[in-house]
């Protein structure tokens, strides 16, 4: 276990391994995304109550699931970088923030579009939507804090603290928003039961959830590679890489 831990702390090793993972993971992910989307869009039956609009589920739910998981990835990476002073964890945390924000945005946007035919309105202050919105703010806060520092090392430490504070708060926010919604519920919106989802609709959904997890991993690795290059730009191995890449 320890050798791997040490290797993870080595930028050239991580850069190379991320590259070789991406070489096969990225095509597979894109293939899975296309397959899942086509399957969900064209080859499944429409839902009994919502009709065809339910097909948005194949991007909405995976994006929401991964957006939440992404915050934990970011916060855990932050914790590792604070506790063990591992610089590469810091890189992972910095890379995760914009990706997570983008996934949260996808979840919110597709949710709003889905709301129009289902509930008759673009936006509802429902518990889950509201906590997703707050999650979006938390992600943007981390991005904004990172950009505000000139000293990038301090920036990532500060972001690590902030994302840990956010992680402690996420369950509290989630529970309190849930409670708040129960207090104010207007009884105008009825959610259709989710457990009744048919297995023929379930398989493409599971595929899409897997694909979105893989996509998050890919984006994380892609961003980490750029970040590593930027941080290590003074070192010999990066210079060698640059001269090799620049040659036609």
């Amino acid at each position: 276990m320890w050798p791997i831990f040490h290797k993870l702390g080595s930028p050239p090793w991580l850069y190379a391994i991320a590259g070789s993972i991406l070489r096969w993971l990225l095509p597979i992910t894109l293939l899975a995304l296309v397959t899942g989307a086509v399957w969900g869009l064209l080859f499944t039956q429409p839902e009994r109550i919502q009709g065809n609009s339910y097909r948005i589920i194949y991007i909405h739910v995976p994006a929401a699931v991964v957006a939440l998981a992404g915050y934990y990835v970011m916060a855990l990476a932050g914790a590792v970088s604070l506790i063990w002073r591992m610089k590469m964890a810091d890189v992972a945390m910095k890379a995760a923030a914009p990706v997570g924000a983008a996934f949260t945005f996808i979840a919110l946007f597709t949710g709003a579009i889905w709301g129009k035919p289902t509930w008759g309105t673009w936006w509802v202050w429902d518990a889950r939507i509201t906590s997703m919105l707050i999650l979006f703010f938390l992600y943007l806060g981390v991005v904004a804090l990172y950009e505000a520092f000139d000293n990038k090392e301090a920036a990532s430490k500060a972001c690590a603290v902030l994302s840990l504070v956010g992680m402690v708060n996420i369950p509290i926010i989630y529970k309190s928003v849930d409670w708040w919604y129960a207090l104010h519920q207007g009884a105008t919106i009825k959610f259709t039961g989710e457990s009744s989802i048919d297995s023929s609709m379930m398989y493409p959904l599971l595929l899409m959830i897997g694909a979105f997890y893989a996509l998050f991993t890919c984006c994380l690795l892609l961003n980490m590679r750029v970040e590593i290059l930027q941080r290590e730009s003074r070192t010999q191995w990066v210079k060698k890489l640059a001269t090799k890449a620049g040659r036609p």
Partner: peptide, 27 residues
């Protein structure tokens, strides 16, 4: 504490802590 070293911390601090204020506001 996170923004004290920054020259333009004023707006940033709101962005950082307003999401964390929300549960307090609710209850």
């Amino acid at each position: 504490s996170l923004t004290v070293g920054l020259k333009r911390g004023g707006m940033l601090i709101s962005l950082l802590i307003l999401p964390l204020y929300m549960p307090v506001l609710i209850f």
